[in-house]
């Protein structure tokens, strides 16, 4: 849960410039709802790697891992235990 909050904070502060209302639920698709564009996505990945000490491989750059707060959390937990 802590991970999810940190990721959410990063997205809201750095990519949405404080506009929390654009991120309404934890299963909301970042791309379909315009929360992230491709460069925002790369900033998110860099943040995840730096903050949680994990490495995201190229073949892991898929929506199932990164396209909502729920997916990101699942992915971080999976990487931490892998």
């Amino acid at each position: 849960m802590a991970q999810k909050t940190k990721v959410k904070q990063f997205i809201v502060n750095e990519l949405l410039f404080g506009n929390e209302s654009l991120l309404t639920s934890d299963d909301q698709s970042f791309l379909k709802t315009g929360v992230l564009d491709s460069s925002g996505l790369l900033e998110l990945i860099t943040f995840i790697e730096n903050t949680f000490g994990i490495t995201v491989n190229d073949d892991e750059l898929v929506p199932e891992n990164l396209d909502s707060l729920d997916n990101v959390e699942k992915f971080i937990l999976h990487k931490a235990t892998a």
Binding site: L31, S38, L42, I45, D58, L61, V62, D67
Partner: peptide
Amino acid sequence: RQKAAFRNFI
């Protein structure tokens, strides 16, 4: 990395 992100997401 950028290529992969673009391919999978866009």
